Structure formats: C-alpha cells, structure tokens
Computed example of a mutant assay.
Amino acid sequence: MVSIVGCGLTKLDRYYELSEKDLVSEAYKQLITKIKEYDQPDIVIVSSGYIDVLGKNILSSYKISSGLGLQNTKVMRIENGDNGGASILTAYSFIKSGVAKKVLLIGIDKFSDYPSKYVNEYLSYNLDNDYTYHVGITPHAYSALLMKRYMKKYNVDYEYFTKWPIKMHQNASENPLAYLKFKVDKNTVVNSQIVSDPLRIFDVGARADGASVVLVTADEVAKRYFDSPVKIDGIVGNIGAMNLSDPSLPSVAKARNELGDLPKRDVVYEIHDSYSIMAALEIEELKLAERGKGLDVVDSLDINLSGGLKARGYIGGGTAIYQLGEVFLHLTNQFKGKSANAEKGIILSNDDLGNTSYLAVLSR
C-alpha cells in the first residue's frame, strides 16, 4: 500500500513579492516541522501547469529541489494543464512498483504577476491549437456554452447555478488558508459581472498563487514519519472530450466506472470546480445526484469544505496536490476550516473543461 505521512500548504493569495521557489519553500518548512523525522525523498515530482509560460521557468524541478537543499534525488516536472492528478498517479505508481519508498509531491503555480488578459491567453493553450485557440475561443466561452446547453436541457434558470458559489464562499469563510474568505448571497451572484453569457464572475474558479507539498511513502516506512498515516487506496484516470451537445463529462464517467459505486456518507470530497457548471456535471457523473440536479444536493454532501477552486482558490497544475493535502488533513483531524468526520476521502482532478480526469481514494 501507499501512504501519505505529511503535507504543507501555503495560504492562497496574490504574492507579488514571492517567486515560485519562495512559495514552495514556505510549504516545505511546514512539512518538515510536522513529521517525526525527515530524510531526503527518493524522487521529487513538481506538478505545475504554467511555470514555464508564466514563470519563464524551464527545468523547474531541478531549480525548486536544489532551492530546498535536496541532493542525491531524482527530479521531474509533470505538465498536464490544470490536472495535477497525473502527478499523484505517478507518485503512487513509483511507490507501488517498488521503484521508490519516498516521493515528495510539489504543487505550484502563480498567476498574479500578469493581468487577466495575458493569463486567459495562456489558459487558452489548453484548447485545440489547430483550430479552437486560433479563432479566439477561451475556456470561459466553452463553459458558458456548456451552461447554456445544460439550462435548456434540464429547464433550469441561472439561479440554479448560484447554489454553488454561495456554498463555496460559505465554506471558504471558515478556512484560514482560503483566498476569498467572504460570504455571498444570491443577489450578489446574480448581479455580478458577466464573463461570457450566462457565465458570471462568481461562477469561475479564482486563480491565485500558492504551493503545496505532500510526502508519500511506502507503508513499511510510513510510521517513521507520522503515527496515523493516510492510505491511498487507489487512483484511476481516463480521457474523453466534454460533450457540448448533450452536457456531460465522459472522462469523469469512465474514471468513476473503474471505481464502482462511490459512498455519500462518511466521506469527504474535493472536486475540480473550475466553473459552476463543471461542479454540477462532476457531481452528476460521480452519481452523487440525478441528471439535472447536481447542485440540489450540495448541502447533503461533505464536498469542497475548503471552499473549492471557486473560493479557496485555484493554483492551476498544483491544485490536485493541494487537494491531496487538504483531504489528508481532514482524515487526520487537522483541517482548520469546516471539517468532516470522514473515514474516506475522494479527490477528483481534471482540467478546466474535464477532458482528462483522475479519481483518487484515500482512507484512514
């Protein structure tokens, strides 16, 4: 089996004065002060979607690792857009196969150094570069089209989607690490700025700066570092283009089918709510709600108690590592915000539009 023995998470915010290395260093300090003993990892994996285009940084895994004082270790960066689930799968596979006993996962992305105009340009690199990107379509526009199709198919109005940002801001208001620590009401959401009709600013995950580090080990060495390690029971993934004509996320459905039925009780979920419409579809694809009613069940689930990408903040390719740390904290009763008394944790990581998805299952 594979275990998580510790993590470090920075508060998500705008850090104009700090570099990616500075943010990782802060998270790393938290990790090494929390575990019982520390020695160097066999492998370091940096999960980042945009450190090259936004940070002008190539060979970032070496630069970050050496900045932490690490020597005699293997290093790599995994780029999978905003989907850091690939990094978790890689760490899990290294340990499960016996290639390594200790893997340090690092999640990092930084958005505040550029105006939104430039950030949105880089985010559009996730789209098809032969056709879509060059005609000016953005992920925001795609999600707006998906929302329109959903509204028509299920005969719901925009107020249906306000349930998600209201809930996420409520959760974030209790999370000391959240970027947007304030509550909102329906009137605020409905009257907020239109991004791409009907998508509004409160439907969009809040891009921020931040870092996370998670130490993953083989079971036989886990208790050297922490008395109550959390198990990674498994991780699955799949691909499939999101369906505009019949709003759905095939990649999530295929990953979920590999796992079978998912629990609704005694479990904490962290999903990739890049947009309110994505949250609705993800909940439905996980079969936690009927089609067209995904956001009607948010009060009955322990889901995105952190505030999610919407309000806790969204650090691109580092997000899944941050979620992994948060669920570890929930399952070890260390989470400082709204918490769940859960036996299991499930993380759904995907890109902005759900074309690639990973599902990880954790347990006490």
Rank of each mutant, 00 (worst) to 15 (best):
T138W: 03
I315T: 04
K231A: 15
R256W: 15
A141K: 12
K183E: 15
N83D: 12
E326T: 15
D185L: 09
A255H: 13
C7A: 13
V75Y: 15
L331D: 05
D302V: 02
T10W: 06
Q71T: 14
Y38G: 01
A289T: 09
K101D: 13
L305H: 14
Y133M: 10
N257T: 12
E220G: 02
E37Y: 10
L59K: 15
D130V: 09
R207G: 00
K29W: 06
N72G: 14
E258Y: 15
L249Y: 00
P229Q: 11
E290S: 14
E159D: 11
P139L: 02
K11H: 07
Y179P: 03
S61C: 08
G84A: 10
Y125P: 00
G136W: 00
D42L: 05
T217R: 06
K36V: 09
V213I: 03
Y322A: 13
L259M: 14
S143A: 14
N83F: 09
N341Y: 12
A141H: 11
Y15K: 04
V184F: 14
V99Y: 06
T217E: 13
D52K: 14
Y114M: 10
N80Y: 08
Y38P: 04
S349M: 01
K29C: 13
K223N: 13
L301R: 01
K186C: 09
A241C: 04
E79D: 09
